[in-house]
Design a protein around this nucleic acid. Sequence first.
DNA 1: CGTCTAATTGAACGAGATCAAGACAAGTGG
DNA 2: CCACTTGTCTTGATCTCGTTCAATTAGACG
Lengths: 250, 250
Amino acid sequence: MAAKSLGARGAAVDALLLKLRARDSVSEKEERALHEAVGEVREFGAGRTIVRSGTPMEESSLQLSGFSCRYKDLADGQRQLMELHIPGDFVDLHSFLLKRLEHGVAALTPVVFAIFPHEGLKKITEDHPHLARLLWFSTLLDAAIHRETILSVGRRTALARIAHLLCELLVRLEVVQLAADDRYQLPLTQADLADATGLTSVHVNRMLKMLRDDGLLTFRNGEVVVHDRARLQQVAEFSPSYLFLDRQPR
Amino acid sequence: MAAKSLGARGAAVDALLLKLRARDSVSEKEERALHEAVGEVREFGAGRTIVRSGTPMEESSLQLSGFSCRYKDLADGQRQLMELHIPGDFVDLHSFLLKRLEHGVAALTPVVFAIFPHEGLKKITEDHPHLARLLWFSTLLDAAIHRETILSVGRRTALARIAHLLCELLVRLEVVQLAADDRYQLPLTQADLADATGLTSVHVNRMLKMLRDDGLLTFRNGEVVVHDRARLQQVAEFSPSYLFLDRQPR
DNA sequence: CGTCTAATTGAACGAGATCAAGACAAGTGG
DNA sequence: CCACTTGTCTTGATCTCGTTCAATTAGACG
């Protein structure tokens, strides 16, 4: 009931291409191979589960719009988000070789995905080694983002964690042209941010107030407006180097 | 000064093969291709830096013995380990496509590595797609371990974090035959464990005492002895499913 | 208008940090 | 052989950042 077919197949890989072309060149032949690997397009409502932990998988989902997340829950109900996903992200490409995921994927807002059957991805690893390396690269980017998250939840203060997350989203959204002029739509709740940062929603609220009162950023009505990017990055100890935004042969 | 050549090239890929064959079959042809991709063998003393963050890289290191880690530091000197590495781990395979690492790699004990020039790895992606997928898989395993670490530092209590880390190491070391009978050598300091779990060494000490007093495990003189594996896993909320220990075609 | 859900703020609490001191083992140099 | 490091482990006392509990406000929506 969550799935529905759309007529969006033509533009399906656009955001992915923006993401990949920020890191390397993608030939027209490779672009065509990607297009051919797309199966159907699916929509999910906010809050829906997209992938359930442990389920055997035979396809992967490229996010076209909205916000989703990887998450794990503890027995006492506490939730931790592993990664926030934006358009252009292959939210479960890891399952191509893992064959299942050890975490859930959920829609935080309404989302649309283009589905890639693993069969077609396997063919890419055989016929298009460079494109295959780019897909591999995108999973390595996930890992690099994971590592920065480990640093955040392990050692950064609550204030720096929030600031860092919002800095990261600004940069990642700029790459796929969903952020400009130091602002972007982020239709998440403070509880979502809490789950992403390992804090409580109460404390997230206080930290957002501090950032607001200090003139660094405003987060209201699902929009983030960064008022002082330099100072925000300083508070967060944010440097975009872990996002590997340099074009070079991979 | 940290590098030295050894005569260990013959057995260089043994631990890696144990690790891979726990997840899929590896043909003799693929085994040969791996052997051929090995360059020299290098040794590092305890505490040495193996990879410095940001340095352009043209080779990757397969760990043959000892313990190393990926780490990042904050400006105030706090350190967070992203992952502990054991024999059979490709500690910086991510640099094959990232071209540099955004974190450091350091030896926690004396370590030995087999060096794989990226040129040879690239050739594997072109001539041995299945073997390439296995190498890709091993980086996805790193990502899965990262995600479990995010859950640990984000939401688990101090006691559960320590318990979980020691559970994980037990299982990973069993795979490469460096643990048996619920015990293994772990020549790290309590400060190392603190950096790995996002705690202070003082608190690690207290948690280890609790685990000891509760009869769950002993960590002394660089050896971990698990006395009650079932109960330890329960305290940690540990399940090995995120280590993907099932053999199947990848 | 009532009924949600999300945001906000205050007050008390607690897990883990910080500060400090001592114990113990392994060198190391005289 | 012994004084003297040096690093690691251990334990106690105090402090603090973030949690927990609780109450209020503000919107959105039927």
